[in-house]
Write a protein that binds this DNA or RNA. Sequence first.
DNA 1: TCTCGCTTCCTTGTATACATGAAGTACACG
DNA 2: CGTGTACTTCATGTATACAAGGAAGCGAGA
Lengths: 219, 219
Amino acid sequence: MDTGNIAGSEGLSARDRAYQGVRAGILKGEFPPGSFIEEATACEVTGVSRSPVREALNRLAAEGYLELHRRRGAMVRALSATELRDLYEVRLMVETHAVRKICREERALPAELLRLCEVHEATPAEDLLGCVEINRLFHQALVAAAGNRVLVDVFDGLQAPLSRVAMVSLQQGFGKTEVIEEEHREMIAALRAHDEARALAVVERHLALMPRLQSALSS
Amino acid sequence: MDTGNIAGSEGLSARDRAYQGVRAGILKGEFPPGSFIEEATACEVTGVSRSPVREALNRLAAEGYLELHRRRGAMVRALSATELRDLYEVRLMVETHAVRKICREERALPAELLRLCEVHEATPAEDLLGCVEINRLFHQALVAAAGNRVLVDVFDGLQAPLSRVAMVSLQQGFGKTEVIEEEHREMIAALRAHDEARALAVVERHLALMPRLQSALSS
DNA sequence: TCTCGCTTCCTTGTATACATGAAGTACACG
DNA sequence: CGTGTACTTCATGTATACAAGGAAGCGAGA
């Protein structure tokens, strides 16, 4: 039953191994959109039995990676252009709300935001995965600064499907990482000054770049 | 193994029976907030085995009813005043966004909205569950009219935790159902006229009533 | 009597066996 | 040759058996 110990799987529960294994397979394109993942297949790939695999598939379905058809199995969902647009519209709504709240209530900015900028600057542009993660953390911290836990949960829920295009986005050369970092700094400055109009402008400009990759969606 | 056939459970999968059974227990207060629900208990209550029960508990945890502690079990979550406020803040954000979009893009209103008003009028005020459901459907249809599927998903995600207080809310006498229906009609009129300011005012007034029940939250 | 440690039990986590129902195929009939 | 039906097969849905870890209770020693 030992499949050779996936790196970093020490101490993780079988369910988490199954989740990460299947998720990675989807992200890498080993399970192309539209294809069905049978439980037995997921078991072989991840090296765990059906019980944890089923829980993992359920979770992946809840996060939008899969579509569960009763007695048919788990189909890998394709991200349609429409859905991508909808996702970014909601994301813009969430971040806009967060920024407005931060400015109006003059909330203190967490040191985390500035720290992430430093980390970003110190990260080589070649490290795509690293930049994507830092960018995600920045926006998450921004939303968290609004002080609404539910809002953060909603934002996190959007991240799962968006993570599927984030890497593609950067690989395709959209959103140069230096530009992103610069805009993050500008955002911090605007928020510090409680300049709502300017902060909103930055958010809109920053997020407007993303949906362009609709054209790169054929994968 | 036959526990006497819960009403309306014909044809439902064991997982759904488990889900509805445990959920009903939480809503009815048979599992008070803070208490732990053991899998074996859920099995006895719902009459299914542990496999579907586990899936049901996972789903309930994802919806915010339960809090899963590793190797400790499923604790019934209490809705704190803070969380309730956060939920309504996000809900207001979502509905505001939907209303703005409907007005600006001059979207057609689905006949569903008006139909729900008629149904609401025809429903006796004593039928609390019915009124709650109609109200939920109205707001869901309103959000759906914005034409963003992801937005609807987010809205639906808010409903699960809010359903726990909706009934209490009406029982306590907040939000007389006639007032609610009248405001729904006013909302429709404003949207028809693409009167953004008026529609937004109605939304805010309509939702502002709800968080008052924070005081009735001790249950 | 209090505290430390061990043991035991009970819970969750995981694996596997069994049931059920659907989909695909092959054969027979029109 | 096309179509319909019945059978076979196989994936999912469900139940149960096994493993492992933690918490509570009990006992012994200080």
